[in-house]
């Protein structure tokens, strides 16, 4: 009886702000559906984006397989390289989302999305998994190219499921990383430049092309902080059965994604202003 009238109102403030898992899931689904629709309208993009990984595999991969200069512990170099190239092409797809969000902001699309009852973190999570959808489409293409070149990837469904999760997490993290940078630089031109400038170091300072042991000491240290390396290690372990610290790899990717979502959501309001 003595509950003050204001109490339920104050309570509902929290309801507004709290992110229910159901709401997040529904937004993720909505934004992933849009991504699938876009992909289905423009399949040519899948092909154009397949050119680069195909070149890496065909030229770099087959050459170095013949040369035998990179010690990969009994695994043919092409097999060793293929998961790395898969991770790389997912990375390239995701980094594009930072440029896209600036474009969306300039076009008013972001404002419109933000005026829906969608908390920022849910919006970012949705975008991140939409990047995952595109990353998966890309992964399927690279998987097919690698198979054509004679790489024997696993067909174990459980391992492939693991691959799907790793690709989703990797894409989600790099998408958030690039949205975070977009939130800091706020301009499309600068974002383009920075996108290029971080993609290459991420790629070369990772185990995508060569085993970690081959790196100079300082690069090995950097490599420890590069989520791409954990992604590649997990993909390699799952796809071709090389030794991998799967719990660590998944742990790092999940943590990186959560941090990425938090950082990107924090900067989203800056983008909308």
């Amino acid at each position: 009886m003595s509950v003050p009238l204001a109490a339920p109102l104050a309570g509902s403030v929290d309801v507004d702000r709290r992110m229910s898992p159901r709401l997040v899931l529904s937004r993720v689904v909505a934004l992933c559906i849009v991504e699938i629709q876009k992909l289905s309208h423009d399949r040519s993009e899948l092909i154009t984006r397949a050119v680069q990984p195909a070149l890496w595999l065909v030229i770099f991969g087959t050459t170095f397989t013949k040369l035998h200069v990179i010690p990969t512990g009994g695994v043919p170099y092409l097999d060793f390289l293929a998961p790395g190239v898969l991770a790389q092409s997912v990375l390239f797809v995701s980094i594009f989302y930072g440029i896209q969000i600036i474009w969306e902001r300039d076009a008013g699309v972001l404002a419109k999305l933000m005026v829906t009852p969608t908390p920022r973190a849910a919006l970012v999570t949705g975008k991140a998994f939409a990047a995952g959808v595109r990353g998966l489409a890309q992964a399927v293409v690279v998987y097919a190219i690698a198979e054509l070149l004679g790489v024997r990837f696993t067909v174990n469904p459980l391992r492939l499921l693991g691959v799907v999760v790793v690709v989703l997490l990797g894409a989600a993290f790099f998408c958030c990383l690039s949205v975070t940078i977009a939130g800091l630089v706020l301009s499309r031109d600068r974002m383009m430049g920075i996108g290029q400038a971080i993609m290459m170091p991420l790629f070369f300072a990772s185990n995508a092309l060569y085993p970690v042991e081959l790196m100079p000491g300082w690069l090995q240290v950097i490599n420890h902080f590069n989520p791409l390396s954990y992604q590649v290690e997990a993909l390699r372990g799952l796809l071709i059965g090389t030794p991998a610290r799967l719990p660590l790899d998944f742990g790092v990717l999940i943590l990186a994604t959560v941090v990425g979502i938090a950082a990107a959501s924090g900067l989203l309001a800056r983008l909308a202003r």
């Binding site: 509902s12 403030v13 507004d16 702000r17 849009v34 629709q37 876009k38 309208h41 423009d42 300039d106 076009a107 008013g108 699309v109 404002a111 419109k112 005026v115 829906t116 009852p117 908390p119």
Partner: peptide
Amino acid sequence: KRRMAVRRLIGYVPQQLSADGSLSGVE
């Protein structure tokens, strides 16, 4: 204080032409 509740009541069309060209009308 009630951002989400307010947004459920609002339909908003910004100044720029902001529909997504790569989706159909229905989508």
